[in-house]
Amino acid sequence: MMYTLHMNTSLAWHGSLIVVLALNMCACAARMNSLPVPFGRQEGRPVVMGFVDVQVHGPITRIVPPYITFLELLNRQTRERVFLTIQAPDSPFYIHLVPGDYLVTRVQVNEAGFRGMASLHHAFTVTDHPVQYLGHWHFALASPTTIRRLSLSIESNLTQAVADLLLRYPTLSSESVVPALPVPLTGETRLFEITPYPRVWWYVRNPPT
């Protein structure tokens, strides 16, 4: 009887653990694939839109695919920094920006508990036009090595972008969309690993005292 009780308790504990892990996985997926909050027009702040994705080029042993955490934009006139949250391996983005000259300065990539940051230098201009398209941004991440490279190529897929815009935000159906692709259209940079590191023993060798 005691053995049966022990087995039932063990099964119940394992069952609870599986449920908790499943809920955590669902919560993470919901955060990573969250859609932007619907919006309409804002006086003096045009809608800027685009699409971003990231893929690994080359062999890799990590089972979790990388995703873009955010892009950092710098207004060259006001020096204001804008963080464009992505939280997905591929996603459209929509944001209101004040007209002016901008630089895409940084990107953060998450991959199976590892976080990396890379500097970028791609310029674009936001005009007074109500809706502007920054293009489809393809990030290519090299396999993990001592010096890990991250490349970016930007292309225009305006027809698909307009279709996605009208599907998500029908209130903007009366507005035309003009391209505002950043320059240069291609680039390559180095990805630097940043803390916090994954909480596994070979990274956490000196616990706090």
Rank of each mutant, 00 (worst) to 15 (best):
I194Y: 02
P182L: 04
M117P: 01
P182Q: 04
A112S: 15
L166K: 11
S173Q: 08
E175W: 03
R41L: 14
P198E: 12
Y67Q: 03
T195K: 06
R149Q: 12
D53F: 08
E111A: 13
W201R: 13
A123Q: 13
R115Y: 10
L73E: 06
E111K: 09
I95K: 03
P89S: 10
F124I: 09
S173T: 00
V37T: 15
F114S: 07
V183E: 07
V109P: 00
T127I: 06
L158E: 11
S151F: 02
G100Q: 03
L150G: 01
Y3H: 09
Y133C: 07
E80M: 05
R168G: 00
Y94N: 06
P208D: 01
T171Q: 12
V47C: 11
S153C: 11
D90W: 05
T159A: 13
V109W: 01
R190Q: 14
A163L: 10
W201F: 15
E72P: 00
H136P: 02
V131N: 05
P208T: 03
V178M: 07
V52S: 03
V64S: 13
V162R: 13
N110L: 05
Y67T: 02
V183Q: 09
W202V: 06
I63H: 07
F124T: 04
N24L: 15
Y3Q: 11
V178E: 10
L97A: 02
P65E: 12
P208Y: 00
N206W: 05
I194D: 02
F192I: 10
L141Q: 08
Q42G: 05
G113R: 06
F51N: 01
P207K: 01
G40C: 05
T189E: 04
I154G: 01
H122W: 02
E72T: 15
